[in-house]
């Protein structure tokens, strides 16, 4: 039964049944299934843990930016508003330096062609989206925990709002940056282009996240932050749906 659910084709372009053939080692999988997406997801993790390049670089990035903030604060006591802003600056820029890796590495290694031959684009998109989401969630959890530990002035009064914001904010960041990473992987200047393209798109998300974080430092009740959560969820849903529709054009280009 569970196997049936895993292999159930998800409606995508083109909708055809999977061919049942014995001994298929390299065969194009036409339908998008959760299995293929899951395999892409696992592949990302395996190739990441082979070198641990992105992970190490990102952790160092987090340490560096946090210590810069600590140095610049010094003995001053900034307001909660400024501190909740800087938290999201750190998360945004570490997302910007980390999330573009998934597609850029594929182009650099020259493996994107093989992937294009083997699986359909929707599976690639879902797999990479999940990987990006897990990566950015892990990162922002580390950032949030170390932020709470090292910056004493930053006091969160309602933790449930804070953690839900971190979770939904990571989902939103991953949803918008996956498609943008796919776009910049095809461009000539990859490094600088990503934040330039991402900033105007991610701004509604960031402003809402900063607002929600402010609410959590003010000790608001969970019901007061519902409006912010609705915006974050709708942003993520809109981004994932649109990217799912247009990803094929970018990937097959």
């Amino acid at each position: 039964m569970t196997k049936m659910i895993w292999n159930m084709p998800i409606p995508s372009i083109p909708l055809r049944m999977e061919k049942r053939e014995e001994n298929r080692t390299l065969q194009f999988i036409e339908t998008m299934t959760l299995t293929t997406s899951y395999h892409i997801f696992v592949k990302e993790f395996v190739s990441e843990f082979r070198t641990r390049y992105a992970l190490n670089a990102l952790l160092m990035f987090v340490v560096t930016t946090l210590s810069i903030i600590l140095f610049s604060i010094g003995k001053e006591s900034p307001t909660q508003d400024i501190l909740s802003g800087t938290l999201w600056i750190v998360i945004f820029f570490s997302a910007m330096s980390g999330l573009s890796r998934t597609f850029v590495a594929e182009e650099e290694r020259g493996t994107s062609m093989t992937l294009r031959l083997l699986v359909n684009s929707s599976s690639v998109y879902i797999g990479k989206l999940l990987y990006n989401f897990i990566l950015i969630l892990f990162l922002s959890l580390i950032i949030a925990v170390s932020y709470l530990l090292f910056i004493n002035e930053f006091e969160v009064k309602s933790y449930e709002i804070f953690w839900i914001t971190i979770f939904l904010g990571s989902a939103g960041l991953a949803s918008a940056s996956t498609i943008l990473a796919a776009i910049i992987a095809k461009a000539n200047t990859k490094g600088t282009l990503f934040p330039v393209l991402a900033f105007p798109i991610l701004l509604p998300l960031l402003l809402t996240c900063i607002n929600a974080t402010k609410l959590s430092t003010e000790g608001a009740f969970l019901t007061e932050a519902v409006k912010e959560f609705q915006i974050l969820i709708s942003f993520t849903v809109v981004m994932v749906a649109t990217s799912f529709l247009v990803f094929d054009f970018v990937w097959k280009d």
């Binding site: 498609i179 776009i183 095809k186 000539n188 393209l197 105007p200 809109v238 280009d253």
Partner: peptide, 30 residues
């Protein structure tokens, strides 16, 4: 600004057209 920067970063004509179209759609839904 980002749209024109993206266009200037891609040499191939058709790829430039595809990617900038996708970007304007993604920006449009926000």
């Amino acid at each position: 600004g980002a749209y024109f920067v993206l266009r200037s970063a891609i040499d191939e004509e058709e790829r430039r057209a595809t990617l900038s179209s996708v970007y304007s759609i993604i920006a449009g839904v926000t």
